[in-house]
Simulated scan of single mutants.
Amino acid sequence: MKTVLTNGKKINNMVNITSKSNTLRIAIATATVRVSNLETIEAMQQRKVPKGDVFEFARAAGLLGVKKTSDVIPDCHPLPIEFCSITYQIEGLSIIIMVEVHTIYKTGVEVEAMHGASVTALTIYDMLKPIDKAVEIESIRLLKKSGGKTTLQKDEIIFKAAVVVCSDSISEGETTDRSGKAIVTRLEDFGIETTNYEVIPDDFDLIQKRTKLLASKVQLLIFTGGTGLSPRDVTPDAVLPLLEKQIDGIMETARRYGQERMPYAMLSRGLAGTIGKTLVLTLPGSEKGAIETIDAIFPAVLHLFKVMEGKRH
Rank of each mutant, 00 (worst) to 15 (best):
A29V: 00
R312I: 13
S167L: 04
T107I: 10
M1S: 15
L221R: 01
T120C: 11
G8I: 01
R25V: 09
R186I: 03
E188L: 06
K245A: 13
S286A: 02
L281D: 06
Y264M: 15
R232V: 10
I104Q: 15
V165R: 02
A300Q: 10
V4W: 12
N12F: 15
K51Y: 03
N196E: 14
L242F: 11
S167C: 08
Q46I: 02
D203T: 08
K212N: 11
K67Q: 11
S169D: 10
V109T: 14
E39M: 06
E252P: 10
D168S: 07
S268T: 04
D189V: 00
K217E: 15
V15M: 11
R47F: 01
L304N: 07
G62M: 04
A60K: 01
A121H: 03
G249Y: 08
G116T: 02
T103G: 03
E91L: 08
A290Y: 01
P299Y: 06
L220M: 10
A296N: 08
F190N: 00
L64H: 11
R34K: 13
L38T: 02
G289R: 06
D202A: 05
P78R: 10
D168A: 03
V33I: 13
G62K: 02
D237H: 05
K154G: 12
R255S: 06
K149R: 08
E39C: 04
V49R: 03
T282L: 09
G191Q: 05
D248G: 13
I11D: 12
K68V: 09
T227H: 07
L213A: 11
R312S: 14
F55E: 05
T282M: 04
I157K: 14
N12D: 11
V99A: 02
A296W: 04
H303Q: 14
T224Q: 01
I95F: 03
L229P: 10
V199I: 15
N37R: 06
I26T: 11
A272N: 09
R256M: 10
L279A: 03
V4A: 14
K67Y: 06
V234P: 05
H77K: 10
R269G: 12
G52P: 01
I247A: 06
H313R: 15
G148P: 05
D233K: 03
E100F: 01
I158M: 15
